[in-house]
Write a protein that binds this DNA or RNA. Structure first.
Lengths: 127, 127
DNA sequence: CTAATTATGGACATTATAAGTCTATAATAA
DNA sequence: TTATTATAGACTTATAATGTCCATAATTAG
């Protein structure tokens, strides 16, 4: 019933990138990892998924690191969650009674509301 | 990011009890277990938690089984979830930056909305 | 009363998944 | 061309949910 720690790492990483965006510097994973007190190899894996989705930009080589794309302000908290954990689903009905199952339908409503709510939360709100 | 299967078992069990309440019969765990195709020993453990919270009534002995309390209609989906999984929390901030952490605050909003939504869903809606 | 029936509880085993590590490789710029 | 950075795969570890087994307690039909 929780989002993964990876999502937490991702959100904090992006938040840090946003806070530093005006400096123009690229931030290597080591910097982020020590900031968040997480192993850099593990954080790498998390960030790689954000790169795949183009929510951050990876720059190899000396003076490289991660930076934000031009359209960073459009990213929502929902986007980050999907990139890390996949589609958030609150409830998996073990007995697939299908659409006529009231329990399923009821929980789906809650899930839909939550997703909507997450989509409305922008990365901009993390500043 | 999901509610446990136990919650699913619990909701379906209660829904069945509700659907049969007019018959006045007590439903033994074997009946519920075969209905849901779950082992009865495991389902027992789930139901025991509902009994502790007085959401269902256990009756030992021959012709015994589970039944509903007088105030069954007041039970919410939220109540059942708390009884089985404990308080639902969507997000556990690994870096407890406390209240000044925007990420934490933002996710807490989503969580609060979800809890509110679950509290509004009544067991009556499962009929 | 007593025997059959039902629930409860504790210890244990299993499984699934998240979390994390290690190491080799690819990319890039100084 | 070398140092620096990211990527990727295989692997281990940790943790929690899930499930089993068996002994015990409660209750009621007969």
């Amino acid at each position: 019933m929780k989002f993964s720690r990876g999502t937490d790492y991702a959100l904090h990483s992006i938040a840090y990138l946003v806070s530093r965006k005006d400096s123009g510097e690229k931030i290597p994973v080591q910097d982020l990892a020590s900031k968040l007190d997480v192993s850099s190899t593990y954080l790498s894996k998390i960030l790689a998924r954000l790169v795949k989705h183009k929510y951050i930009i990876a720059n190899s080589g000396a003076k490289g690191g991660y930076s934000l794309p031009a359209d960073w302000a459009d990213i929502s908290v929902y986007d980050v969650i999907v990139a890390i954990d996949g589609e958030p689903t609150l409830f998996e009905d073990s007995f697939n009674h299908g659409h006529e199952c009231k329990i399923q339908r009821l929980m789906m409503e809650v899930e839909t509301d939550m997703v909507q709510s997450l989509k409305e939360k922008s990365i901009k709100d993390l500043i």
